[in-house]
């Protein structure tokens, strides 16, 4: 019990207490740009009856879902090749290179995409040489997705690689031996064996994309707004911290449900047929 005490204390201090404060904040009022403690449901009612809140909510859910699917699909061939085809030396170097992006702030990396994606940017400059374009990439959903990939792809490759590298090669050979072709073996044997790692990687991608504001702001042009941008707008216009708290709590609850369902699914034992 005494060993668990510091952990418990930290949990209280840095998680439970701020959460309680956030929840309490969502019931406060703002009068003359000042917050007044209270217990009013007005913030919840105002936010939950606004169409723009739900538009932002479902748009954010959709963006995060697309990001998760696209990132997982793009990452898989890379992780697969590193786990099954690459020599140990190549794998070690690749792992090192995959960590390097995290040296630089994500904000800087996302921001620098503007130089590539803009109407006068490097990509459109290249396209114009061949007589194409300009294509609008910056301040579109495509731009947001490029940012999400920048944020998530290296991490997802690393997490997928770690789980694929643990797949028992005997089981892969056993599948071939029983007449299962190369590609079919990936879906029939390798993916089920690496399921926990693949699901956890996808969950991280969803969580990072769902809460991110850098990509939708700098590369997506804030239109339409995501929940994170809604929080910024709400606090900027009229010091509405309590309403921003409503958005934040909604996001946290959503992520809790997603993370819990994902982990439950990852560890679910297959039921009898």
């Amino acid at each position: 019990m005494s060993f668990a005490l510091p952990g418990l204390l930290w949990q209280l201090l840095f998680f439970v207490f701020p959460m309680m404060f956030l929840i309490a904040l969502s019931f406060w009022l703002v009068k003359n740009y000042r917050m007044v403690p209270g217990f009013e449901s007005v913030n919840w009612v105002k936010m939950y009856t606004r169409g723009y809140f739900w538009d932002a909510y479902f748009y954010t859910l959709m963006l995060a879902a697309i990001s998760t699917v696209v990132t997982s699909i793009l990452a898989f061939p890379c992780a697969y090749a590193l786990a099954f085809k690459a020599s140990p030396t190549v794998r070690r170097w690749a792992m090192f290179l995959l960590i390097i992006p995290f040296f630089t702030s994500y904000l800087v990396r996302a921001y620098s995409w503007q130089i590539f994606l803009g109407n006068e940017g490097i990509f459109n400059g290249l396209f114009s040489v061949f007589g194409f374009g300009p294509y609008k990439m910056l301040h579109t959903m495509f731009g947001t997705m490029v940012g999400y990939l920048t944020l998530c792809l290296p991490l997802v490759v690393v997490l997928q690689l770690l789980s694929l590298a643990n797949v028992d090669k005997n089981l892969v050979e056993a599948a071939w031996n029983l007449g299962c072709g190369r590609v079919r073996t990936i879906f029939q044997v390798i993916v089920p064996l690496a399921k926990v790692g693949l699901v956890v990687a996808a969950t991280f991608c969803f969580i990072l994309s769902f809460g991110d504001f850098v990509s939708p702001y700098y590369l997506g042009g804030s239109k339409p707004p995501t929940l994170s941008i809604l929080i910024i707008d709400t606090t900027k216009s009229g010091q509405q911290w309590p309403r921003a708290a409503v958005v934040a709590i909604t996001m946290i609850v959503t992520l809790m449900i997603v993370a819990f369902s994902a982990v439950t699914y990852a560890y679910a034992r297959r039921t009898r047929q």
Partner: peptide, 25 residues
């Protein structure tokens, strides 16, 4: 020929049973 193109089933030392499938599967 590739392994899946032969009819030469093998019983592994480690048995290599698929843990995500039931016995009959």
């Amino acid at each position: 020929l590739r392994p899946e193109e032969r009819d030469t089933p093998l019983v592994w030392q480690s048995l290599a049973l698929f843990p995500f499938l039931s016995v009959v599967e």
